[in-house]
Structures are given as structure tokens and as C-alpha cells.
Design a binder for these strands. Structure first.
Lengths: 132, 132
DNA sequence: TGTTGCCTTCCATCTACTGGAAGGTCTATT
DNA sequence: AATAGACCTTCCAGTAGATGGAAGGCAACA
């Protein structure tokens, strides 16, 4: 399947998909005309990259996460250790998002009319202006 | 308080804190000797930035999130709309992290000894190698 | 009064893309 | 067959968001 379709299916721009190939994150086949030809497995890798990048993992961390599924050279205990460390990190991220969610939710439900919310957390954040 | 302390309290490198000032995300006071002097409110802003950046929000989105708490010019309904949109985005991020967590958890709990996991999701991801 | 550590600015470098030019390919229509 | 439009290719330059390092000022203490 062509890069346009891969882009649509993965949610990543074609430019980014080519870039990921450049830095060795995937190696799609080529058709006779020189076009990249993406398999279903490629699409899964791309979707995985899209997800984990958008969630704040660096490209190198994504590389590590991807390698968990396929590095047959690496010792299994080692794979498990990395996966567990990533799990801890993911749990921390989830907790932080939940916190952020609570903060925003508080704002939405306590902000009515032209009044400002009356909340110490928000008051502290409201200390000063921010350039637009 | 000095930038070193602010760095420690916010979890952001001093370099990054100065950069955030450069792009107008905060405006700390200065002491007579020219040193930056961070208030408690500054620390909260920095922690907020650290959190939301690490969760995949762009600097501009962070700017928007910060403005929710302090932009007294903006119409309140508008503020609410932005906050609600961000809530939807945060919920999506949480759902994606939970999905990622499940995938990794599956790997950890099904990967023992030198055997590879036996799972279609993982098999599909394992389609090919990744450059280290 | 050194020396150690933290602070300043400025400029270069890095990561992770993103845009645009110049040109080849595919498909449909005239 | 030719031409248009949408796709694809590579290559090179630019941007966003930091990050590293040099050169030098300030602070605290033996």
C-alpha cells in the first residue's frame, strides 16, 4: 500500500513516515516503480509510533518499546525489565493526566458568568500573565 | 528563589526554564545582582509546564492551558469551550495510555524464559527489525 | 584573597520534524 | 497519443523546542 494510504491509516504525515524510515524505525518494501509499499505490520508499527510519540515518549524510547516485541537477541529477563520500567512510566503519565483532568474539570465546573474560579490551586497558577 | 532551586522544584533543567522565559511563558523577577528570582506562583507554572509538556502537549497548547487560568479579557464561555476541548484531548490521551499499558502488561506477563510471547497484536508489531 | 559553585548572556548544536523545489509515475479524460 | 492532476521520489533548507559550552560576573567560605 502506498505512503498516502499508510499516512491516512496511521495518522502520521507522509513526511514523518519517510523520516521514520530514514532513522531506521521501519523498512517498508518497494514496488518496481520505486514507490514505498507498506504492509499491515508496517501500519501497526506506524500507529504504535504515532500513539507513543503523541504521549510524550521520545523517538529513542519508542525504538526501545518497539524492540521489546522483536529483539530475539536480547535476554528475556532484560526485555521484561525494560517493559516493567516503561509500565511504571506509563502509570505515572496516566496519574498526571488524571490530575490535569481534575484541574481542568474544576475550572470548567466552577467558572460561570464573568466570575473567576475561586480555587487556591488555580489562584496560584494565575499569578501572572503569559505572552500570546 | 534562584534558578537552581526552581529547577529542582519544577523538575525542569535551568536551561529550559530560561528558554521558557525567552519565549514569554513566564516573567520571573530579578534581584539586584541580576539573578532571576522565582516566586511560588512561578514554580507552579513551571511544574504545570513540565507536566503538560511531558504529556505531549505542544508549547502553544501549554500557553493556551495556562491562559485558561488568567486571561481576564477573554469571554468566560470561550474559556470554558477551550477547557472542554482540552478535557476531551486529555481523556483520549488517558485512553491511549491505558491501551499501551495493556499491551506492555500483556508482554510482561506472557514473556517467560526464552520464549517469545504468543499474541496476535504483538506478532503483528514484530513484523520486522528496528535499527538500534 | 583565592577557589568553588552558581549565576549571567550568547552562540552553536541537536532532535524531530516540516516545507518546498525539481522531477518521475499513474490514471483518467480528451 | 497526449495532457492534466494527483500521486510518488529525493534532496536541501527551515522550524520548534530545547541543550551544550564558552566567557565572564557574583557569593560564600577557608
Amino acid at each position: 500500500m502506498n505512503i498516502g494510504v499508510a499516512s491516512e491509516k496511521s495518522g502520521l504525515p507522509a513526511k514523518t513516515i519517510r523520516y521514520y524510515e530514514d532513522i531506521g524505525l521501519l523498512h517498508p518494501a518497494r514496488t518496481d516503480n520505486g514507490y514505498r509499499d507498506y504492509s499491515t505490520a508496517d501500519i501497526h508499527r506506524l500507529r504504535f509510533l504515532q500513539r507513543s510519540r503523541s504521549l510524550g515518549f521520545s523517538v529513542d524510547e519508542c525504538r526501545q518499546l518497539l524492540s521489546l516485541y522483536q529483539d530475539r537477541e536480547r535476554d528475556s529477563a532484560d526485555v521484561k525489565a525494560i517493559a516493567k520500567a516503561k509500565l511504571v512510566e506509563i502509570d505515572r503519565k496516566i496519574a498526571e493526566l488524571v490530575g490535569l483532568r481534575g484541574l481542568l474539570h474544576h475550572l470548567v465546573s466552577h467558572c460561570h458568568g464573568d466570575e473567576r474560579p475561586d480555587c487556591p490551586i488555580i489562584d496560584e497558577l494565575a499569578g501572572q500573565g503569559v505572552a500570546q
